[in-house]
Amino acid sequence: MTEKAVVIYSGGMDSFTILNKAHREGLEIYALTFDYGQKHSKEIEFARNVCAELNINHRIIDITAINQLISNSSLTSDVEIPEGHYADDNMKSTMVPNRNMILLSLAIGYAVDIGASKVYYGAHSGDHSIYPDCRPE
């Protein structure tokens, strides 16, 4: 029996890398894509297409309700997304507080429900200066 793994897959390059790692390991993948109202929603379509092409079980989960509580990010509000390097101070407006931990919590619950022994997500280590939930600790 093939080992099951849940992969948080946004459709962006970090999660694409981890999805392919799990795929190469021969795991039975259950990919989760979260719609939290992000402006870069075109990644959701990329995720859908990649999972279809690789024949990976894929679910897109609407969690836009979190914006009733977390609404100050330029990724999810009317505030314009700044340009620049992630280390630049102006990029702090792109932080969605505790986003990765929220996604991980949902993915772990799903893993327990389906009997998956692993949960994968790809965080860009270079984002650690503005995103606390991308730091190793």
Rank of each mutant, 00 (worst) to 15 (best):
Met1Trp: 13
Met1Phe: 14
Glu3Ile: 15
Ala5Asn: 03
Ala5Tyr: 03
Ala5Pro: 01
Val6Pro: 04
Val7Asn: 00
Val7Lys: 00
Ile8Glu: 01
Ile8Tyr: 02
Ile8Asp: 00
Tyr9Pro: 01
Tyr9Val: 07
Ser10Trp: 12
Ser10Gln: 12
Met13Asn: 08
Asp14Lys: 00
Ser15Phe: 12
Phe16Ser: 14
Ile18Ser: 08
Asn20Asp: 10
Lys21Cys: 09
Lys21Asp: 08
Ala22Ile: 02
Ala22His: 05
His23Gln: 05
Arg24Ile: 08
Arg24Ser: 11
Glu25Gln: 12
Glu25Cys: 08
Glu28Cys: 07
Tyr30Lys: 06
Tyr30Cys: 05
Phe34Ala: 04
Asp35Gln: 10
Tyr36Phe: 15
Tyr36Trp: 13
Gly37Cys: 06
Gln38Ile: 11
His40Tyr: 12
His40Glu: 10
His40Phe: 12
Ser41Trp: 12
Lys42Met: 13
Lys42Asp: 13
Glu45Thr: 11
Glu45Pro: 01
Asn49Glu: 15
Asn49Cys: 09
Val50Cys: 06
Val50Lys: 11
Val50Glu: 04
Val50Trp: 06
Val50Pro: 05
Val50Asn: 07
Ala52Asp: 10
Ala52Asn: 14
Glu53Gln: 14
Asn55Arg: 15
Ile56Thr: 06
Ile60Val: 08
Ile63Glu: 09
Thr64Lys: 15
Thr64Leu: 07
Ala65Gly: 08
Ile66Tyr: 07
Ile66Val: 10
Ile66His: 07
Ile66Cys: 08
Ile66Ser: 09
Gln68His: 02
Gln68Ile: 04
Ile70Gly: 11
Asn72His: 14
Asn72Asp: 15
Ser74Met: 04
Ser74Cys: 00
Leu75Asn: 12
Ser77Glu: 06
Asp78Ala: 15
Asp78Asn: 14
Val79Pro: 00
Glu80His: 09
Ile81Trp: 13
Pro82Met: 01
Glu83Val: 07
Glu83Asp: 04
Gly84Ser: 04
Gly84Asn: 02
Gly84Lys: 00
His85Leu: 15
Asp88Thr: 04
Asp88Gln: 06
Asp88Ile: 04
Asp89His: 12
Asn90Glu: 11
Asn90Asp: 12
Lys92Arg: 15
Pro97Cys: 07
Arg99Glu: 08
Asn100Val: 00
Ile102Glu: 00
Leu106Asp: 02
Leu106Asn: 05
Ile108Gln: 13
Tyr110Met: 02
Tyr110Ile: 02
Ala111Lys: 08
Asp113Ser: 12
Ile114Val: 01
Ala116Glu: 07
Ser117Met: 11
Val119Glu: 05
Val119Ile: 13
Tyr121Phe: 13
Gly122Pro: 01
Ala123Phe: 07
Ser125Tyr: 03
Gly126Gln: 03
Gly126Ser: 01
Gly126Tyr: 06
Asp127Met: 09
His128Val: 13
Ser129Met: 14
Ile130Arg: 14
Ile130Thr: 14
Tyr131Gln: 02
Pro132Asn: 01
Asp133Ser: 03
Pro136Gly: 10
Glu137Leu: 09
Glu137Ser: 10
